[in-house]
Lab assay of single mutants.
Amino acid sequence: LELTLRVGDKTWHFKDVDEEFVRHLEELLKRGAHEREIEEIIREWLR
């Protein structure tokens, strides 16, 4: 999967994204996660 995600003024483009990561992001967005929380999840995933 490829994913382009825009949060606030930042845009990330990922290739070979894990479906579990996408589901986790979807859940965060559904519950109205704040920009900082989403950025933290992305940084963790990139490690």
Rank of each mutant, 00 (worst) to 15 (best):
12 W>N: 00
13 H>N: 05
35 E>M: 08
5 L>R: 00
31 R>I: 08
1 L>T: 11
8 G>C: 03
38 I>M: 05
5 L>W: 02
24 H>Y: 13
28 L>W: 05
35 E>Q: 13
22 V>S: 02
9 D>P: 03
16 D>E: 10
1 L>K: 13
21 F>H: 02
47 R>K: 10
25 L>F: 01
22 V>M: 05
1 L>N: 15
29 L>M: 15
28 L>Q: 08
47 R>D: 05
42 I>D: 00
1 L>F: 15
43 R>L: 13
11 T>P: 00
38 I>Y: 04
32 G>R: 03
4 T>F: 08
10 K>A: 06
12 W>F: 09
46 L>M: 12
47 R>T: 08
5 L>Q: 00
21 F>L: 04
24 H>M: 12
11 T>H: 15
41 I>R: 09
14 F>L: 15
38 I>T: 02
4 T>V: 14
22 V>E: 01
14 F>Q: 00
43 R>V: 11
4 T>R: 13
13 H>G: 02
11 T>C: 08
35 E>A: 09
9 D>Q: 07
16 D>V: 13
22 V>P: 01
9 D>I: 03
11 T>Q: 05
12 W>K: 00
31 R>Q: 13
29 L>W: 06
28 L>I: 06
26 E>L: 15
43 R>E: 10
36 R>A: 14
7 V>L: 11
42 I>G: 00
5 L>K: 00
3 L>W: 04
18 D>C: 03
11 T>M: 09
22 V>I: 06
21 F>N: 02
5 L>V: 15
29 L>K: 04
33 A>Q: 07
38 I>P: 01
13 H>W: 06
46 L>E: 08
10 K>V: 14
29 L>R: 03
28 L>N: 04
39 E>I: 06
17 V>F: 03
15 K>P: 04
39 E>A: 06
5 L>H: 01
33 A>D: 05
39 E>K: 04
32 G>Y: 06
44 E>P: 00
29 L>F: 08
5 L>N: 00
29 L>E: 03
47 R>L: 10
24 H>Q: 12
38 I>R: 01
6 R>L: 10
7 V>P: 00
35 E>P: 13
43 R>N: 11
8 G>M: 03
19 E>F: 15
9 D>M: 05
6 R>M: 13
47 R>H: 11
15 K>R: 12
27 E>S: 13
28 L>E: 06
5 L>A: 01
43 R>P: 01
45 W>M: 05
44 E>W: 09
4 T>C: 13
18 D>W: 02
1 L>E: 12
19 E>V: 15
36 R>T: 13
9 D>K: 06
24 H>F: 11
25 L>P: 00
28 L>M: 12
47 R>E: 06
18 D>V: 02
27 E>Y: 15
36 R>L: 13
7 V>D: 01
17 V>L: 03
8 G>N: 05
20 E>T: 13
24 H>K: 13
39 E>L: 08
11 T>F: 07
12 W>Y: 15
15 K>H: 12
34 H>Y: 07
45 W>C: 03
44 E>L: 11
41 I>V: 14
15 K>D: 05
9 D>H: 05
25 L>V: 08
45 W>A: 03
6 R>Q: 15
17 V>Y: 04
17 V>M: 04
40 E>Q: 12
8 G>A: 03
3 L>E: 01
24 H>P: 01
31 R>S: 12
31 R>C: 05
24 H>S: 12
40 E>N: 11
25 L>S: 01
1 L>P: 13
17 V>I: 09
4 T>Y: 09
39 E>T: 11
26 E>M: 15
21 F>S: 04
7 V>E: 01
5 L>E: 00
38 I>L: 08
14 F>I: 06
32 G>F: 06
11 T>N: 03
40 E>L: 10
10 K>E: 05
12 W>L: 02
43 R>F: 12
35 E>S: 09
34 H>Q: 14
1 L>Y: 15
42 I>V: 06
9 D>R: 04
16 D>F: 15
47 R>G: 08
31 R>H: 10
16 D>A: 15
9 D>F: 03
43 R>H: 12
44 E>K: 11
31 R>A: 12
34 H>S: 14
41 I>P: 00
1 L>M: 12
2 E>D: 15
35 E>G: 06
41 I>Y: 15
16 D>G: 13
2 E>G: 12
2 E>L: 06
6 R>P: 03
12 W>H: 02
35 E>F: 11
16 D>P: 12
31 R>E: 09
7 V>N: 02
7 V>T: 02
16 D>S: 15
45 W>V: 03
37 E>K: 06
47 R>S: 08
31 R>L: 12
30 K>G: 08
31 R>M: 12
4 T>W: 10
42 I>P: 00
20 E>C: 04
23 R>Q: 07
45 W>E: 02
40 E>W: 10
24 H>I: 11
36 R>M: 14
35 E>V: 14
42 I>C: 02
47 R>A: 11
44 E>Y: 08
5 L>Y: 02
2 E>K: 07
6 R>I: 14
3 L>C: 03
36 R>H: 14
